[in-house]
């Protein structure tokens, strides 16, 4: 059993990383951050927090490896199929009234949710009019997202999700496959730009009709959630939509009064004008 990291040790690590590398994890939710550090130590055969601190101070490459590991990059295509179905039924018809539709995927990881969205938009006949901005803190994830390589072993699950989400085509018509990967057709991806953006420190960069930020808030404490909700409010056109993860809540934030629920179950909100 690896020795549990104490709260003090965790704070020391967070401030060391901030000082040395400029990444600020001080407003990340503590329990899962601690768990990520703990798992990284197991994975990198680091015996204790002192050893970890020493390595971090001396070795920038080691830090990059750790940053890659502790920022969660897990994602799925059409995760929570009924969310996508609700989006298609309630939100896309409204988006269709705009001549240009701008969408921000904040915290897109390796892009699976973005690819789900473009398939949905394609089937609604809207993709041509969309500009999709997909951002993440993690540069390595973004490189993977740009290649749109999806492990082939996941495609069976994703096909099921797609069908449950109300997909209308043969799912395999959206990708080509080799022995290991499915590649989403590049023609579908032409309106996506991927770039690095840090929700902790970066600012508004455009105005959107829809922001998707699903299962990113869970890694933030309430202060940071408030900050990011303000950022989203300022980044949304009046009556623009915001989608969060199914178990993420606005209930505990004062910013919630500036949004109204479109679907409380599927966590789709709308900026009040």
């Amino acid at each position: 059993m690896i020795k549990e990291i104490s709260n003090e040790e965790l704070e020391t690590l967070v401030s060391l990383i901030h000082r040395q590398y400029g990444y600020d994890f001080s407003d990340y939710a503590r329990s899962s951050l601690k768990r990520r550090f703990q798992r990284f130590m197991g994975y990198a055969y680091i015996g204790g927090v002192n050893e970890l601190s020493d390595r971090l101070l001396q070795d920038a490459t080691f830090f990059e490896r750790m940053a890659q590991f502790i920022t969660v990059n897990v994602t799925e295509m059409f995760r929570d199929p009924l969310f996508y179905k609700t989006l298609k039924d309630l939100v896309l018809p409204r988006l269709a009234t705009y001549p240009t539709i701008k969408i921000w995927h904040a915290g897109c990881a390796t892009g699976e949710e973005v690819f789900s969205m473009i398939i949905l938009l394609q089937e609604a006949g809207l993709l041509e009019r969309c500009r999709i901005y997909a951002t993440d803190l993690n540069a390595v994830s973004l490189l993977k997202a740009e290649k749109a390589l999806i492990p082939l072993k996941c495609m069976k699950d994703y096909t099921q999700n797609y069908l449950q989400a109300g997909g209308m085509e043969d799912f395999s018509s959206y990708y080509t496959a080799d022995d290991e990967h499915a590649v989403i057709h590049s023609a579908l991806r032409r309106n996506i730009v991927f770039f690095q953006h840090n929700l902790v420190t970066d600012q508004v960069f455009n105005e959107f009709q829809l922001i998707c930020c699903r299962n990113v808030f869970i890694y933030f404490n309430r202060q940071l959630q408030d900050r990011v909700l303000r950022l989203f409010y300022d980044s949304l056109a009046p009556l623009g939509y915001l989608a969060l993860g199914l178990k993420e809540s606005m209930m505990f934030s004062e910013e919630s009064i500036r949004f109204e629920a479109v679907s409380a179950v599927h966590k789709i909100f709308r900026r009040k004008s």
Binding site: A29, R30, S31, S32, V72, N215, I218, G245, K247
Partner: peptide, 19 residues
């Protein structure tokens, strides 16, 4: 809940995790 890890923060609130 389905498809999340469920944790508890020391301040007595739930925290979810999708790692």
């Amino acid at each position: 809940p389905q498809n999340y890890h469920l944790l508890i923060e020391t301040d007595g609130t739930f925290a979810l995790d999708y790692s």
